[in-house]
């Protein structure tokens, strides 16, 4: 994957600007290039980066809220509605134990959904931003 392959001397190529060909010279740049030579502010304001940040946040923030709420429901029901949670469901297995196992199942599920989403929607966008920044070559 190009995502991990880094060329150590690469430059950020501004969208508009004088040193547009710096990225093409990446391989012959002096090795002393530091992070101060990358124009982070213009990457941060580029539409590709804003799209990347949006895609990530639109997923992780609601998902965090969701799992926190779902976990809180479980804890509060256990704390304040013990009769409901102690009700047998299948044989001697109680409602609370089902809820508990469901917490474990949702943990796995959310992790898997996130992994798929990141692979599909986030990682390609990261590659795009990195290519535009001249960090990775196509």
């Amino acid at each position: 994957m190009t995502y991990t392959a880094r060329s150590p001397g690469a430059h950020f190529v501004p969208e508009r600007g004088a040193s547009t060909d710096a990225g093409n010279l990446a391989g012959v740049q002096a090795p002393s290039v530091g992070p101060e030579d990358i124009d982070f502010a213009s990457i941060q304001h580029s539409p590709e980066f804003i799209e990347l940040r949006g895609r990530l946040r639109r997923f992780v923030f609601p998902m965090t809220g969701l799992f926190l709420a779902w976990y809180l429901i479980y804890v509060l029901l256990s704390s304040y509605a013990p009769e409901f949670m102690g009700r047998p469901v299948i044989g001697t297995i109680t409602m609370g134990l089902v809820f508990g196992v469901a917490q474990l199942v949702t943990t796995i599920t959310i992790t898997s959904i996130y992994r798929g989403y990141a692979k599909r929607r986030v990682d390609p966008q990261v590659r795009l931003v990195r290519q535009r920044a001249g960090i990775d070559r196509r």
């Binding site: 995502y3 880094r6 150590p8 950020f12 290039v33 530091g34 992070p35 990358i38 982070f40 990457i43 980066f49 990347l52 940040r53 990530l56 990261v126 931003v129 990195r130 920044a133 960090i135």
Partner: peptide, 8 residues
């Protein structure tokens, strides 16, 4: 978010 600047 992107890892740009990591190795530098």
């Amino acid at each position: 978010l992107t890892g740009i600047g990591v190795r530098l």
